[in-house]
Design a protein around this nucleic acid. Sequence first.
RNA 1: GCCGGCGUAGCUCAACGGUAGAGCACAGCUUUUGUAAAGCUGGGGUUGUGGGUUCGAUUCCCUCCGCCGGCUCCA
Length: 665
Amino acid sequence: MVTVQLPDGSKQAHDSGVTALKVAEGISPRLASAAIAAEVDGKLKDITAALDDGEHNVRIITSRDAEALEVLRHTAAHVMAEAVLRLYGNRTQYTIGPALINDFQYGFYYDFDLPESVSISTDDLPKIEAEMAKIVGEKIPLERIELSPDDAKAEMKKIGQSYKIEMIGDLEKENSGLSFVSVYRQGNFIDMCRGPHLPDTGKLGKAFKLMSVAGAYWRGDENNKMLTRIYGVAFFDKKELAAHLERIEEAKKRDHRVLGRQLGLFLLDEKVGPGLPLWLPNGSIIRMELEGWLRGELLKRGYQPVHTPHIGKLDLWRTSGHYPYYEHGLFPTMNLAEGDGEDGYLLKPMNCPFHIRIYKSSQKSYRDLPVRLSEFGQVYRFEQSGELSGLTRVRGFTQDDAHIFCTPDQLEAEIESCVDLTKLCLATLGLNDYRVRIGLRDPDSTKYVGKSENWDRAENNIRHVVQKLGMNFTEEPGEAAFYGPKIDFVVKDCIGREWQLGTIQVDYNLPERFELEYTAADNTPHRPVMIHRAPLGSPERFIGILIEHFAGAFPLWLAPVQAAVLPVSEKFLAYAQGIHQALHEAGLRVELDDSPDKIGAKIRRATMQKIPYMAVVGGREEESNTVAVRHRTEGDLGAMSLEAFRDGLLAEKASRGSTPLQVNA
RNA sequence: GCCGGCGUAGCUCAACGGUAGAGCACAGCUUUUGUAAAGCUGGGGUUGUGGGUUCGAUUCCCUCCGCCGGCUCCA
C-alpha cells in the first residue's frame, strides 16, 4: 500500500507500485501530460518511478515549477549526447553533461572525447540540433535502471565508455557502501546518471538551441586530455528561448569592449601589445574622477600616499615568495648590468615589497600604527594569452592598492574599515549586485607560505569581522592568496562572467619574511600584521564593469562630457559660445557642437555619445537668456535660465547623482 | 598555454579562384536648419603576417600575430 499526501493536504491510497504519473492521472489528464517529475518526500524523482510502500508527500512538478527547468535541461544534455553519438559514431566517449540553471547564457553542456579524426565546430551545431529534433520526434522513453556498481561498469565496458567506468570507480571511493548506480536508457543510448529525467524525449520539445563549442579539460585539470564541450540552452517554450537569445543580444551591446570603442574610452592596440590598454581622453576623465574621489576618501581615513617605481630588484620578490612561485606569470627578468648577477630587475607584479621597504625605512613605535600606505600602483603580470579580455583581464594594470601595517589588536578594526570602504565604493557607483567570497587556504595544497597558526589566526580574524558585520558570504577553500586568506567582492559582467573587484587580504606571513617590527609599549620588538587591500581592485577592471553597468551612460560626475551646447543654426553660434564658456568656467566639461548639421543630427550624435545633458539654443533662448534642456534618456526637459541649468548640474555633479537636475525649479 | 572559430576602409559588414563594394565616419561644396540621421561630390584598402598550391589567391593549404567563445590560471 502506498499513501500519498498531496501539497493541499489531501491523502490518497494507492496500490503498491503506483507511480507519481498515475497519481497525476488520477487528479487530471492535463496535470498528467504536463508532469515533468515528482517531488517525493522532498526529493526530486522521475515521474515514472514507482513509489515505495508507505506514506509519502508527493508534489507533481510541471513546467511552472522552478525545479522543472533543470530536469528539462538535463534531459536535453542526454538527447544532445545521443545525437552526437549517432552522428559521430560509437567511438565517441561521453563524460559529464550537467544542466546549468543560473548561468546567464547557457543551459546545459556535455563534454565529449571524440574519435581522433573528428572535430566539431559551431558549423556542425545545426546538424546536431537537427538530429536532436529527430530524437525528440521519436519520443523515446527514458528508463531508469539501478545496477550494482560492478554490473554498471560491465554495462559501460560493453559500450566502450571508459570515462563512465572511471566515474563509477570514483563513486565507490567516495561511498564505500555504494549499493547501486543508476543508469538511464533512452533507446540505444545508455548513460550513467543520477536523474531525474523527463519521461520521454518528446517532452523536450523544440525550444532548445546549441550555442557554442569549447575545449574543456577532463576533470578540469590541464594535465588531462582536452575534451570537446558543447553548450546549449533549453526552455519549455519557444517564446522563452527567443526572449533568452534576445537578452544575450542586448547584453552584448553593453559589452565594455564595444562601448569602449564607441565612446572613445580606451584602446587595445595590437602594435602596443596584448592586454596593455591605452586610455583615451574620455576614459581618462572617468579614471581621473573615480580615482580623485577615492584619493579623497583615503585621506579622510588616515591613509598616506606613496609612489614607487615600476621595477625593482628581483630579490625583493624572492623574499616575498612571489618569485619563483609566480615566475610563469611574470614578464621576463631584466639584467641591466654585469654586476646584477643572476637576479637583475623585475617589472613589478605587486606593490607590497616597495611599501614594506618604506615601512622598514624608519623605526616604528606602536604609537605610529596603524601605518596605511596607499598608491595607485601600476603592475604587470604576464597573464596567459587565452585569458586576456578587454579591461577585465589585462597584463598591465593599476591597483588602488594600500598596505596597512598594524598591531594584532588593531587588525579586526582595520579589516572592518576596509570592508566599509569597499562597500562605499560599490554603493557610490550603484553596483549592488555582488557576492562576497572568503578565500581560505586549501589544506591539501603546498602553495601557501607560513605557519599554520598564522593562517588560523588570519582566517579567524576575517570570520569575526564578516560575522560581526552580518554579511552574506561563502567560504571557499583554495581561494586564498599564497600569503593569507582574503575577502573578495565578486561581480558579474554583462554576460554573466564573474570578476573579482575589491579584495582585502590578511597577512601574517610577509611581515615575518621581511622581518618587520615595531616597538611595543613594553619596549620590546613586536611583529606587525599586514592587510593588503584594494577596494576597487583595479581601476581598469572596475571601470570595465562600470561601463557595462551603466551601458556607457555614466553619471554626471564621471561623464567624460557632461553637457553639449547645440545651437539650432549657425546664427546662434555666438550665443551658444557664451553658454559654453559660462558652463566651462563653472568647472563643467562642456562641448559645443558648431557643425553645420541640423539640430536633429546634433541631438542624435550627443545622445549616442551618452552625454547626460544637452543645451539646445536658438532664437527663443537667446531672447530670454535661457537654454532648452534635453536629457540623454528623459528627452526634452523644457527651458530654464542658464544659471539654473549651471547650478543644477553642479549640484548633481557634487552629489554624485543623488540630486538630479530639477526641472522648472 | 590548450580546444574551436574569426581577421576585408577608422567602425559595422558584403563579395569569393579572375587583383574588392556598401552604410556610418572623414574632407569639400550646397542648405541655415527647433528636439534621435539634409543633399551632392571626393579621398581612403599590399583583404593581419610570412610562405605554399595555382596561369592567376582576399578566396584553398601551412607558419606566425591578434581577436572572440570556453577550459586552465588569476599574487
